[in-house]
Amino acid sequence: MSEEVSRNINIKEPRWDQGTFTGRAKHFFMVTDPRNVLLSSETLEEARVTVENYRAGIMKPGLTEDELWRAKYIYDSAFHPDTGEKMFVIGRMSAQVPMNMSITGCMLTFYRTTPAVVFWQWVNQSFNAIVNYTNRSGDAPITVNQLGAAYASATTGAVVTALGLKSLATRLPPIISRFVPFAAVAAANCINIPFMRQRELKYGIPVTDENGNRLGESPNAARQAIVQVVVSRIGMAMPAMAIPPVIMNALEKRAFMKVSKLHPCLLYCFVSTEWIYRTY
């Protein structure tokens, strides 16, 4: 049984040591826990009150450390860290696993016709725009014009890339066409992220010393950060979008697939490692 909570817990930081893989894994499993999407408004409000009261030095009688950390992760899953406003539900980190797995499964399944390619690339970029807006920085807010430009450019880039590669893939082995969605997503990330963070490229991002003291803003640090984000986003897409096509190409030749007619989209969602690779 947990004892009553101490007044000296720093709930601004993760509960577990982020210097270890296990600590990072536990933290991100909590952050992306899909069950938080199903929590009621009353539960979210109760968590918000608990966290804000604790920060103000007010503690509910009988509150335990486990309950405080639970409230902290519920609060973080639903409320913006800078503005404190409740975030749109499908833009929350807790919605990323089911949303990304569903959209990825559909993109990898419905790639044979042009209307399907256009539709699912549009759905994916629309979802990305919602996530980017929901998680916008309070220190460097995204304007409506920036959001619109990034959305339009990323959607156009993804669709043009997908259709262009789809056309080329008709003259190549069938498995090649299965990688068209991955190439389109990679191209969209190369366009979308710099557009969304153009303000940082122009004015820089905050730079601090080892004690957390803000020294100023650096455009060079922003460029390095954006390159790293683009590369990591493409790398994160690889397990879910590059591995399943190989598996599905082999499975669809099996007799049980032809007999059961099990929809490929369900298998894509099953074999997707979306939740696991995001712990990195």
Rank of each mutant, 00 (worst) to 15 (best):
Q18C: 10
I176W: 06
Q228C: 14
E46H: 11
Y54H: 04
T109M: 06
R92M: 09
A78L: 02
N135F: 09
P219A: 03
P244I: 06
F28E: 03
M93G: 06
N145L: 15
K258P: 08
D139K: 14
F195T: 04
I193K: 11
A95M: 00
K12C: 15
Q228Y: 11
V118G: 09
V185F: 10
T22R: 15
A71E: 01
G164L: 05
D76H: 06
K253R: 04
A225H: 12
P245G: 05
M257V: 04
L266N: 15
L39H: 08
R7W: 00
Q125K: 02
Y75T: 07
M1T: 13
M196K: 12
A78M: 03
S272Y: 08
I193T: 11
P245Q: 00
A255D: 14
S77T: 03
V37D: 08
K12G: 15
L165M: 03
C106T: 05
L251M: 14
W120R: 02
A116Q: 14
N36A: 13
P81Q: 02
Y280V: 13
I191Q: 02
L108H: 00
T104N: 12
E13T: 14
R48K: 15
A183R: 11
R233Y: 07
W120L: 00
T279D: 01
P61C: 05
S260Q: 00
G91I: 05
P239A: 12
P244A: 02
V207K: 10
S94W: 05
N211Y: 13
A225S: 13
E252P: 02
F119K: 13
M101F: 14
Q121D: 03
T134V: 09
G212M: 06
N220S: 15
N124V: 03
R70I: 03
Y133I: 06
M241N: 08
I247F: 07
M236R: 06
N124T: 06
K261E: 08
N249K: 02
I226M: 07
